[in-house]
Design a protein around this nucleic acid. Structure first.
Lengths: 361, 361
DNA sequence: TTGTATTTTTTGTACGTACATATGTCAATA
DNA sequence: TATTGACATATGTACGTACAAAAAATACAA
């Protein structure tokens, strides 16, 4: 559990970085902060002293405590540094190298530099990354949202970027609370096509592995349900296995249980993505379930891991590099004051056949 | 009249600077200092905290308060943000994703975040990246040098990190002007083994494609010359094609000329790296030179592009992910005050046979 | 209206108490 | 002899009281 003074420290720091407390502004007195935060003066002073030590605040006896000038000034100082910040969930894994390649390629063409930070799908790490970008002063920002299906405590940072006129876009998903341009695969369509492909191969008992904390998971479930509905197949909750970022470590074990229990019930499985698809392959090998003879599966995203595995996974495309490139293009155009840039860009998925779907008679 | 805590501050500081309290030594407990100086614990703690803020002391809960080593003096700023900066030439291309994967993996294990910037082998971009890292205040830094075979105008930034006690290491090469820990492939050995492999297959007319602005290029040429020398083969400058970062865009055209002129002279070619190797493959196809029948080639680095090309390139290993991992491990250990960490780490290359070398009779 | 004195407000120094948490030491046990 | 558990020690967090010192606000006199 975080110490109280640390909570104050972070809250006040956050208010400074988002502009709630502006440079030169006098923050509430120690006495007022005691009342606001319901802590002793000792605790208030400890937080203030640490903020002062880090240069955010300066205190003047008999007068009050003021926001130092340095952070906002630093933003202005770097106004023309031609650096674009990119915040993604991961850097080296899955489809992210391809996305980043797209971004980097476009930025290089325009002589912009890239500053890259990862969040590991954790809001606290997203906050840290945003503070870095905000305090240093990047020209633009490309962000993949963190746990996009859940409330995000960092929305004010995005509003601060907006207030400062720093263009930003989101990729893969977006915070639906914000009016923000975004570039996304049509996740509904991806999962719809995945499910439809299984149905067209004769499958009627189709399960789903779904992720709950990202919007992709939500919309991919929507596509699954849509396809079931179109073909008058019943949605059965017990055929759905859900996981999130925190329970991902248990997915292997949970898949064992799920697949063992549904061995007779399911002939096919729509997987949240290729990574999950390959995890299912691994678990099936362990359980003696033959793919695709006993269970057909389809992933999504057309990641390199779908292509390089022992068995070539059937999957749906994800725009990856193209999306990264176009997001970077958007930012650069915005910085050049282009008008009429798109507010939302959806990419339509295409089926990539593999070796993991069996046609039933 | 001086405040009491100021008296303590100065007295203890004096004892440190005169050597009464030596580096690493445990000073009297807070309780003992209360008795010695006849003040409250609050006053003792205030003095100790300020000495700690200035880097003279560090306190450890349950243990005591110790005199810091001097180079830790300025680490207080952002001491707890657990962010490691990584500056590489590229992010998405060639062997860099693997290196970054190694770094990221290790940092994640230790709950550190990664802030990543690329230089495109340009000193101005390196400067920008260094300024970002320095001004924000990362806990440590992993850097691939920029144009490591040429004078670097940014050396003072590295000295500044050193002065601030921020640990940093270099990978792939290092600035020979600095005393800096580094992690490198043994480039001499890599090119030596490449050349020797061609010689062992009967080749005596061996060319070299070399890069001039990076230390890797210099040492890879050294290995080539070493192998030629061992086998009493003459080094012929006209068999060497050199390029650098700025002329890389012309490499294709220059290779056409070089290979056309040396069509009868050379039976084999040592390439600076796999990327260059595959460029040679492309040019040979264009010139109607059959590989390996008419020209044997060998790359270096064992990058993914060597494995996924139409023809499987013969190459030498590069530690890539392992190196990234160990560089990150070094930084983390340094931050934990480990002693006796290595100053230089070389990785020995291993030949990876491919399809691009023909044995001559 | 302006200048000066006084009072109030706000931060700075310093005393105290209490409990939490991490480390170090020592004795008991396997 | 090595390991584990209990206990002591030492720092960390957080509450409180009191007074000092500097700045700001207010009151009063010229």
């Amino acid at each position: 559990m975080k110490p109280k003074y640390q909570e104050l420290f972070e809250d006040i720091k956050s208010k400074i970085l988002t502009g709630d407390y502006e440079a030169g502004e006098r923050i509430p007195t120690e006495s007022a902060l005691q009342d606001i935060y319901k802590v002793s003066r000792h605790t208030v002073r400890k937080a203030i002293l640490e903020l002062a030590n880090e240069g955010y605040l300066r205190s003047e006896k008999g007068s009050g405590t003021y926001v130092s000038d340095q952070y906002q000034a630093k933003s202005r100082e770097n106004a023309n540094n031609k650096i674009i910040g990119v915040i993604t969930t991961y850097i080296s894994d899955y489809i992210f190298p391809s996305i980043i390649r797209g971004v980097e390629g476009k930025l290089n063409e325009e002589n912009y530099s890239l500053l890259l930070a990862s969040t590991n799908n954790d809001a606290a790490q997203e906050k840290k990354a945003l503070e870095m970008m905000l305090s240093f002063g990047v020209n633009g920002l490309i962000v993949e949202p963190t746990k996009s299906n859940l409330y995000n405590p960092n929305l004010s940072y995005y509003l601060s970027f907006k207030a400062q006129g720093i263009p930003f876009v989101m990729i893969n998903a977006h915070y639906e609370e914000l009016e923000v341009p975004f570039f996304c695969l049509d996740d509904v369509q991806s999962s719809y096509l995945a499910t439809k492909e299984l149905i067209s191969k004769g499958h009627t008992q189709i399960g789903l592995i779904s992720k709950t904390d990202d919007l992709q998971g939500k919309y991919r479930m929507k596509g699954y349900i849509k396809a079931l509905g179109e073909y008058r197949l019943q949605f059965q909750p017990e055929h759905v296995l859900s996981f999130n970022t925190e329970t991902k470590g248990d997915l292997h074990a949970n898949l064992e249980t799920f697949l063992a229990e549904n061995k007779e019930a399911l002939t096919a499985l729509v997987c949240y993505n290729d990574e999950v698809g390959l995890e299912v392959v691994t678990v099936c090998r362990k359980l003696g379930i033959s793919i695709p003879d006993e269970l057909s599966i389809i992933g999504q995203d057309n990641s390199y891991i779908a292509k390089t595995a022992n068995i070539k996974l059937s999957t749906l495309t994800h725009p990856q590099e193209q999306m990264g490139r176009e997001a970077a293009d958007w930012i650069i155009k915005k910085l050049k004051n282009h008008k009429d840039l798109p507010n939302e860009t959806y990419y339509q998925p295409v089926l990539i056949p593999g070796e993991t779907i069996k046609k039933l008679e």
